[in-house]
Amino acid sequence: MLDLFLAQSAFPQAMGQGVLAHYLFVSAAMFTLGLVGFLTRRNLIIMFLCTEMMFQAAGIALVAFSRYHLNYDGQTFVIFVLTVAAAEAALALALVVFLFRKRDSLSAEAWLEMKG
């Protein structure tokens, strides 16, 4: 068991395409779950949580490709994805708190009509 774990971690060894396909599938499935959540949930906080889930799915694909090509660019890009996710969380949550105080509700449908 431990041998299997370590054999895959050794960085200079190339990773097979079959293994890459597994990681890409997990990434795509997680992205889809995030999309389903974003479309079906009506709570603003959960909707933003689902966008974070989609960021995370993109991160898995980036790191898997980085591992496959033995190149650090993908992991570097995940750092910037994390930066954008943090910025988005700060702004979105400030906005959610602001909106909650106006309507006393977290429902996205409380904002169906807006004054221009």
Partner: peptide, 27 residues
């Protein structure tokens, strides 16, 4: 993958993938 280049991810991958996708469904 087995019939292709014969490489499979370790069993740890399957456990972690199930936990990740299952908890995403819960979210």
């Amino acid at each position: 993958a087995l019939s292709g280049d014969g490489t499979l991810p370790s069993p740890v991958f399957h456990v972690l993938a199930i936990i990740a996708l299952g908890s995403c469904l819960q979210v």
